[in-house]
Amino acid sequence: MDRLELTDLAALLRDAAGDGEGVPLDEDTLDTLFMDLGYDSLALLQVTGVIERDHEVILDEVALDEAETPRQYLDLVNAALSARAAA
C-alpha cells in the first residue's frame, strides 16, 4: 500500500530546506514541532507539492497547515493515501 514513511519525509524535507540545516527526522523527533526542527511553512509547502505530484494525490493544504509535528503531518498524508486506496 502507498504510504509515506518517516524516512521519506526526512529526505523530502532535506531537499526542500537545504542540507545540514534542520534537525534530522527520526523516531525521537516525531513529536517535535517543525519550527523547532528548523523547517518553516515554506519548506513544508514545497514538500506537500512534491508528495501530491509523486503520489498523484490531492492533499488538504488547510489541514496540513495545522500539522505542527512530523507525526501529525505523516498521519494526515497517510490518511489521504488510505482514503484514496479505499475509494
Binding site: D15, A16, A17, G18, E21
Partner: peptide
C-alpha cells in the same frame, strides 16, 4: 550561503 537558502 547557508544551506537552508540554497533551495530557495
Amino acid at each position: 550561503v547557508p544551506g537552508k537558502l540554497l533551495p530557495q
